[in-house]
Design a protein around this nucleic acid. Structure first.
Lengths: 205, 205
DNA sequence: ATTGTTTTTGGACATAGTGTCCGGACAGAC
DNA sequence: GTCTGTCCGGACACTATGTCCAAAAACAAT
């Protein structure tokens, strides 16, 4: 059987695109509902129309490929999120969350795969931790600044509250993206903003 | 090589304990820092001192064994959590969270494995969803009751807020258990209670 | 003690996937 | 045309899974 030597999607002008083909294949398979873990190198290569040996030229293993996919995600969100300050009010905070929800929806399959693999693979876990770390550091710093300015009570524990706001808030956003109606996104981001506003940034004394 | 026919830990009085031996072995391996995913049936059997064929007599596969381990977890927490009402005040809520944190610390390795596998295995995901579902339903119901009584504003979205409180709160607890100092547990549960109190249950109008 | 029942053993077997290697084919660039 | 880098396709050793079965051990009777 002579097989299909040239993959169909190969641009004639471009030099060598097996790598891009593999990344696109995984994106496609994930979007189709597959779980990254149950996805084998064989299946990925078949979907990509690429020889299995070619896979290992570009990626050490499946996890390395996922990190390549993760690059598409790298926090454009952080710049927007860190721009918010309590002076801007809860409506502006809701806008920040709307932006993050939009990013999460756009990259939902890849984000899901990253979270999935981060639970058992060290390198992916490190990548995702690094992704969230700026939010954690930024939130702690912001709370301390507000405490120094007397706008947040000094007896509030910044580290404990940041556990609630960052990993907790992220999880809530994931839940909305995975299970919630997109039409309800605005109501959700409003509630998230108001909960942090009255629960953390302007908690009554 | 004649091999060690009888495993060392076998109680002579008890009838057939290979199953318990396997469960204990996995608990041991998880507590030793292993990831459930990277744990093979072979490794489990070796640790348990049980023949590999015996494994399949008791469990269909690794996931089935994990569900057996999950039984040790089944929500004793829910009864305590559902007993709280806003009338009891935020200090009582903090006590509820302290109880949940204690349960999470006690079963940390198994809980971690359940969360890990739930990300890619359907049956484990269903088990864990069923575990959290009472909290979700209870929180939505509680908020609606408080709205009917006029103690929570009617324009608060109960479903959206419950995403924040239940999956979000659980994630925060996991973060505290996995990364936080146990000595700081009380400070954490206090902050969690106060955040939900002022952010949700007694949000200022 | 002998017998019967139940559980476990240890190995065989088919299947499937991983990671490595290499000769050869094939493009675009010079 | 030849060179160069990429890709193919298959071979190979290895690891693990899941199924099966006859023999052995442990247990519970009488």
């Amino acid at each position: 059987m002579p097989s299909i030597t040239r993959r169909p999607g190969a641009q004639p002008g471009r030099p060598a695109t097996a790598e891009a083909e593999l990344l696109a294949a995984v994106r496609r398979l994930l979007a189709g509902g597959a779980t990254f873990t149950e996805l084998g190198v064989q299946a990925i290569c078949k979907e990509a129309g690429v020889a299995r040996s070619t896979f290992y030229i570009h990626f050490k293993d499946k996890a390395a490929l996922l990190l390549g996919l993760g690059a598409e995600f790298t926090s454009s969100s952080f710049a927007i999120a860190s721009s918010w300050q309590p002076q801007d009010g809860p409506e502006a905070l809701a806008d920040v969350f709307s932006h993050i929800v939009a990013v999460y929806r756009e990259h939902a399959p890849v984000r899901r795969a990253l979270a999935e693999v981060a639970a058992y693979d060290e390198t992916v876990r490190a990548f995702w931790d690094a992704e969230l770390q700026p939010f954690t550091a930024g939130t702690i710093a912001l709370i301390r600044l507000e405490q120094d300015a007397g706008r947040i009570p000094a007896d509030l524990d910044p580290v404990a509250v940041t556990r609630i706001v960052v990993p907790g808030g992220e999880r809530a956003i994931v839940d909305q993206v995975d299970h919630g109606d997109p039409a309800a996104d605005d109501a959700f981001t409003r509630e998230l903003a108001l909960t942090w506003w009255h629960g953390v940034y302007r908690r009554p004394t």
